[in-house]
Design a protein around this nucleic acid. Structure first.
Lengths: 238, 238
DNA sequence: TAGATTGTTAATCGATTAACAATC
DNA sequence: TAGATTGTTAATCGATTAACAATC
């Protein structure tokens, strides 16, 4: 058995896994992680309302449509300033814009994708990126049979060239859509290329320096939680 | 603007979104949701160790390889009983088996998938299901151009037939991999078919009775959180 | 003005951590 | 036995909720 070095323990602990670290609001206070996660849900609903031409929205309506309580919504916003008018509510397009700015989604953010398999293909084809001003700028793989081939409107690039490619692109974010066994190598490549935030879809734990943010999406873990809930008629932890 | 009925508010609140509801351990106590989520991470690591032929593992090693603290690991297990031997650690294959049983992954669990697009295709092709004893038993779509065609080793079925099909299969879980606009209809179909737990990949809020468990996987929300973290050199909430 | 809804505070609730007695 | 590691308790920490004064 390998034992963790203190370095690696520290690296893990200081990132996303412990839930201990906080964001900073514009006023310097700490922003809870769940607040950041919910901001994106508010943004989704506000984009919907904006497209429908709705002008104002009240916190009670946010609760009705997202399931997040009105009090929670107002508390979440309070980390970043004042957004509404008592007696009226919130101006949809103003709030949408301000939340987008908080999340740095008011400018285009480039994303590198590692893994041109089925999941990678689905990620590139996902139609929602544009609305959030995220753009997958390049796709990489280590499979010579795939390199050079197209993946939708992108050409699959050699993972060996990731550093050189991103010297041009300067993407700040990356996604890992490779098998678990290759996930760490993919992360290392992204980090060498200058990526500072990584979304990992592989069922594997990624090691990275504390300056690199890593979040994990594991649908198999989600299904495991739901499996536990099966059979319980209420009061399940999910 | 539509206002939420109390019914619908209640339905939302009593499911997964608030984090208020708890699971129940075998001893009747409440199990925190984060504990259930971590159990699946432990299981993943234990499956790895088991395949490597490792016989015992200590909580400090769990911490080193998963980033979840040793104290947290022991606390999580304590909701379900005693699993280890002081001075020794845990027997890998025993612990693996017992965690699988807690998560009801000691038997095959059937899953219905709605949506035979790129994401649905990637989900069917995902090689990890078998290890968790999850099996996608049928795929449904409402697109006549797709119905009847194969998706890997499955035939894409008409969503209209979902109730009849699941009268045979008796799957308890479902996954939604359709555009946001169709997500609620997909959920309604799954629920009519008798599914009790749903994993929703669409960026949409699903309404369901409190007896149906819903969890959401939203990679765009994950990317939004990471986007917020960009630029902060440390102390980001993710 | 009267009614409605915000922003914020304090109270509650729940999860994580640290420490250590029990025990292999 | 001595050393190691568990299971559990109590303390800490953080997030959610409820209530209400401020204000449109």
């Amino acid at each position: 058995m390998t034992r963790a070095t203190d370095e690696w323990k520290q690296a893990l602990a200081s990132r996303c896994l412990s839930g201990r670290d906080m964001g900073r609001s514009s006023e310097g206070g700490a922003v809870p992680t769940p607040t950041l996660e919910r901001l994106s849900t508010y943004l989704r609903y506000l984009l919907e309302l904006d497209q429908l031409g709705v002008e104002t929205v009240r916190s009670a309506e946010i609760e009705a449509h997202t399931g997040i309580s009105a009090a929670q919504f107002r508390k979440d916003l309070s980390y970043f300033g004042e957004f509404g008018k008592p007696g009226i509510g919130y101006y949809v397009s103003d709030l949408r814009r301000r939340i987008a700015t908080i999340l740095k989604l008011d400018r285009e953010q480039l994303v590198l994708l590692v893994g041109a398999g089925n999941l990678g293909s689905a990620l590139v084809a996902f139609p929602g990126w544009e609305q959030y001003r995220l753009r997958i700028a390049a796709v990489f793989d280590n499979n010579v049979a795939k390199i050079g081939r197209p993946l939708w409107d992108l050409e699959i690039l050699d993972i060996e060239h990731i550093v050189a490619v991103n010297r041009e692109l300067r993407a700040g974010m990356g996604m890992i859509a490779v098998p678990a066994a290759s996930a760490q190598a993919a992360a290392d490549g992204l980090i060498r290329a200058g990526v500072r935030a990584i979304l990992n879809f592989a069922p594997a734990t990624i090691r990275a320096e504390p300056t690199v943010w890593v979040r994990n999406v594991s649908f198999i873990q989600e299904m495991a939680v739901l499996s536990y809930c099966l059979g319980s008629d209420g009061g399940c932890g999910c």
